[in-house]
């Protein structure tokens, strides 16, 4: 997957987990939690959906790497080749 495709994967998952949010204005370098109403349970859902939909496993020690959209893409792109 390209970085753009990985970004869309993450957006798709977030749109399901936080369906009330406007995802069109996300700034990739800012913390997702600062921009969206996401809590720790939502991040567990993101991890779960990555595993279910794309067979990508995110170990607990790597959860901080999902903090921003940019870090998500950077972390997930090698795993989704």
């Amino acid at each position: 997957m390209t970085t753009e495709e990985v970004r869309n994967v993450v957006l798709d998952i977030i749109s399901d987990i936080a369906p009330d949010e406007d995802l069109g204005t996300i700034k990739d370098e800012l913390s997702l939690r600062e921009q969206l109403d996401l809590d720790s349970m939502d991040f567990l859902d993101i991890v779960m959906e990555l595993r279910k939909r794309h067979k990508v496993e995110v170990p607990a020690e790597d959860y901080p790497k999902l903090a921003t959209m940019a870090s998500c893409v950077s972390y997930l792109t090698p795993k989704m080749q």
């Binding site: 349970m41 567990l44 859902d45 779960m48 595993r51 279910k52």
Partner: peptide, 16 residues
């Protein structure tokens, strides 16, 4: 049901 759809992957069991 979800677990069965995913090769009994128990790690997909929801935290909710």
């Amino acid at each position: 049901f979800e677990m069965h759809q995913n090769n009994l992957d128990w790690k997909l069991w929801s935290p909710h």
